[in-house]
Write a protein that binds this DNA or RNA. Structure first.
Lengths: 336, 336
DNA sequence: ATTGGCACTCAGGTGGAGTGAGTGCCAGTG
DNA sequence: CACTGGCACTCACTCCACCTGAGTGCCAAT
């Protein structure tokens, strides 16, 4: 059983290890934090912590480092969220406030977050969800090539290339544009597919082209479900003192691939306001075993998406949680 | 003076060093490439090459490695472009052919190129240049927030957020949308600003809002000049055996920052078809001293932009040049 | 111009000794 | 019963000395 002092010791171990990156031993522990007891006593407590798999010794007779489970207990019970300084807060607001458009805003978000924390920052694009169709533009790029641009009432823009089997003229495009806009403008994206299928066919000679367009539009609406990711600060993984054993290649590769990170973020999808922390092997995803993911929701036009950061399990959880929270909150106020 | 055999020796040194990553000495040189002479003779040639700063010895009495200047001579005079295998070619065409839209196509391009070469691949977004306005959509996001979406006749889409001082209703937006579209649809982007400034003012009560919109549009048109970059394969920098001395941090940071790379690419802007190679210190840009950039133009709707790759100066120039060329050509055929 | 021979250099690997931070255990104490 | 001081032990790391081998520059001979 782990005593109350045992937990204090765990907290101290995590703090010292995070700041020094060296396994911490009983002696230096009593030196830095004056528990009212001797090193030998602390050693007993440490033995208990090791019993519970909260800490581990990298090799016989060296200091201890926290395990994933140890970090978990630390995050859940032993740390309090440190608040950001007001200058940091202002920095965030100034930098995010200047953005030009949605893409730019998310880009600035991850930049800010990665600079603030020295970790890799990620943000999920919101799904289009309950948005409505504002306008559908069709552009003729060539005799058998069209592009559709779907604009929603909350300012998202999705485009798609279409290869038609038959040749299309500019007039055809005009006709189709009017027809389709008339039928889907103002409709929710989720309804679009049904509306299109139900619509009465237009001129027979355009049927083939119209079919291809409807097909493409449906895909476009579908596609937004599997959302997209923006990230920044991957260079932080290489900061002179890095925490990862073995090659960084699999890690950076996994991050660049995005799919694993995206999956993790999606799983964390819960209420905004709550900050989720997933530590090391808790997410046994290939490449990310040595990292923790700190994320929380932000809301954009009612939709909740995740923004967060990725770093070594040995990270400053208090500071990072605070940073993620602050950025997410401000992002929400900008978007809602 | 460097003899003809001297140049052959240089070629051999580059080839051996690129494939073995070890300084190459006179003995192993005669072993692998049977010049008709003895090692001592080769040593004399190597001394001449060193005299010309084409090769250098990392430490006294070790093998030699090529200098940036040595690579330059190799690229310009000693290497021939190796052609890609037809399966590689087909792979490129299959993967790029499937893309959905312009963004996706460029994303696939860099992915392909980075996988093909194991380097970092980059591609520059084309400037909008001579494109014409197809449609301008205005979306009302809130009482004082609008978003403008500019669609060009070659399928590019640019969006921008606008904060208006006065409140705007949906009706106002409709009015403005019609007015602005009427005046700029079909105009070249370069003309847009002039046209807008010259246009007669509409309803006086909308003047403020219209002013803000016009302002934003002008910026939007301007902004596309400074183009944007897509990249992939940064993980390749960390492949187990990597070539960079010192920390990778400054390098990855510079790449992620994009601005330096963008500047380099822009400077290379010349005719398509020609493959440019910039080697190491030839571009003395902070962070990229140990890298070479191989790039060439691709054309999109008449505009020429650059696509290329970035890797250690010790790279397989022949193969990489071939890959860049093949990808750029196919990209051009898709886009033009 | 080319060659074989020779003395020299130096990075990298190997192995042993020493150091110090840290441990587990145990007997003793308030 | 919780805590303490003491003690023997472990083991990663550093330093140093030594060796090896690939490679060099130079020179006299062809």
């Amino acid at each position: 059983m782990v005593s109350q002092r045992g937990l204090d010791v765990l907290r101290a171990i995590v703090q010292d290890y995070v700041s020094s990156r060296e396994p911490v031993g009983s002696k230096s522990l009593v030196d830095r934090h004056g528990f009212g007891v001797s090193a030998a006593t602390i050693r007993n407590d440490m033995a208990a912590l090791e019993e519970e798999h909260l800490i581990v010794a990298p090799h016989t007779s060296s200091g201890r480092i926290p395990t994933d489970k140890g970090y978990r207990v630390f995050v859940d019970h032993l740390s309090e969220v440190r608040q950001l300084s007001s200058t940091q807060r202002q920095g965030i607001e100034r930098f995010l406030g200047e953005s030009d458009d949605f893409d730019d805003l998310l880009a600035r978000t991850v930049r800010t977050l990665s600079q603030l924390t020295n970790q890799v920052a990620v943000v999920q694009y919101p799904t289009l969800g309950p948005a409505r169709v504002q306008h559908l533009e069709i552009v003729r790029l060539g005799p058998t090539r069209l592009m559709s641009v779907l604009i929603t009432d909350n300012g998202r823009v999705e485009q798609r290339l279409i290869e038609t089997r038959a040749e299309v003229t500019d007039e055809d495009v005009s006709v189709l544009r009017s027809r389709l806009n008339a039928s889907i403008a103002g409709k929710q994206l989720t309804e679009v597919e049904a509306v299109l299928r139900a619509a009465s066919p237009g001129q027979p000679d355009l049927a083939v082209v119209e079919g291809a367009l409807v097909q493409a539009l449906s895909e476009q609406v579908q596609a937004n479900r599997q959302s997209k990711l923006v990230l920044a600060g991957t260079a932080n993984l290489l900061k002179t003192e890095n925490d990862f054993s073995g090659s960084l290649y699999p890690l950076l590769d996994a991050i660049e691939e995005q799919v694993v990170v995206l999956k993790l973020l999606t799983e964390m999808q819960v209420a905004a306001e709550v900050v989720n922390v997933s530590i090391g092997r808790e997410h046994a995803n290939s490449g990310l075993e040595q990292t923790s993911l700190v994320s929380t929701g932000y809301s954009s036009a009612g939709e909740i998406s995740q923004v967060g950061l990725l770093g070594p399990t040995r990270m400053d959880y208090s500071g990072n949680i605070a940073a993620v929270q602050a950025v997410a909150r401000y992002l929400s106020t900008l978007l809602d």
